[in-house]
């Protein structure tokens, strides 16, 4: 079964020069063609089957995050169609929706409800989440007193306790200290081994080689290569190192 299907998908943005005036909106609204749009993704097609774990690689600005926003239906495609089947958990930005003035406990419930937990699930999983993030002592303190690492732990705890069919991860694999990172990776591998689909953006190629079986390489919005993770990474890495050297 295909869980994610992209058919000739393009996503364009306006080059606004920083200013948007009423005229621009009216032109948009009445469907005037932008003569010189910016293509964040251009004519990308691929399908991901149930249970696959896929890495998305590419340099900064290649369109990786745009691709994830399309998969999560946060943004509509400008052309083409995007189809997704199954319950999806997205770790696009850890702690999105957290509020500094609320306590850890209040933020866990708020975040859980945003990610689609029911009240019962949130109550049942609260203990697990707190245990996972190792923040028992501080759970009733406001979030603004937490360190960055503590906030990330809490966010990861909530997101990973959701039981998704599709897990989407954007550059958030490097979380906290080494021990906590290892714990998170164990959890992600556990989710993968349960036969869930994983779509993952990262620059940590060592992790990607272990976690994923397939990779998609994007460059300037175009799909350059789609295949087994080792082949794609060995084609991509020299290019990336070369570009860095230049």
């Amino acid at each position: 079964m295909n869980v994610i299907e992209f058919q000739n998908v393009s996503k364009t943005f306006h080059r606004s020069g920083g200013q948007r005036l009423l005229r621009h909106y009216l032109e948009d609204f009445f469907g005037a063609k932008d003569p010189n749009p910016f293509y964040a993704l251009k004519d990308v097609s691929f399908t991901i089957r149930d249970g696959e774990s896929v890495a998305v690689v590419g340099s900064n600005g290649a369109g990786k995050s745009t691709l994830l926003s399309l998969v999560t239906h946060l943004a509509p495609p400008s052309e083409g169609t995007v189809k997704v089947n199954g319950r999806l958990a997205a770790l696009l930005e850890l702690g999105a929706g957290f509020h500094p003035d609320l306590t850890g406990r209040e933020n866990v419930f708020l975040n859980a409800s945003l990610l689609g937990f029911t009240r019962r699930q949130a109550n049942d999983l609260f203990g697990t989440i707190v245990d996972f993030s190792e923040l028992q002592e501080f759970i009733d303190e406001p979030l603004r007193t937490y360190s960055n690492g503590m906030i990330l732990r809490l966010a990861f705890g909530v997101a990973l306790s959701l039981d998704p069919q599709i897990l989407i991860i954007d550059e958030v694999l490097a979380v906290g200290d080494l021990a906590f990172q290892a714990k998170c990776m164990d959890k992600i591998f556990e989710i993968r081994n349960q036969g869930k689909t994983i779509l993952c953006v990262s620059h940590a190629t060592a992790i990607l080689k272990n976690l994923c079986s397939r990779a998609i390489w994007l460059d300037h919005g175009q799909l350059i290569m789609d295949g087994p993770v080792d082949e794609v990474l060995s084609a991509y890495s020299p290019r990336a190192t070369q570009a860095a050297a230049e």
Partner: peptide
């Protein structure tokens, strides 16, 4: 797409707004 608990979410968002407005007053 999103098939969570509308009432639970609404309650959390409402309580959040209210608490933030008054907590530090």
């Amino acid at each position: 797409m999103w098939n969570g608990d509308y009432l639970f979410l609404l309650q959390n968002l409402v309580v959040k707004d209210f608490k933030i407005r008054y907590r530090n007053m």
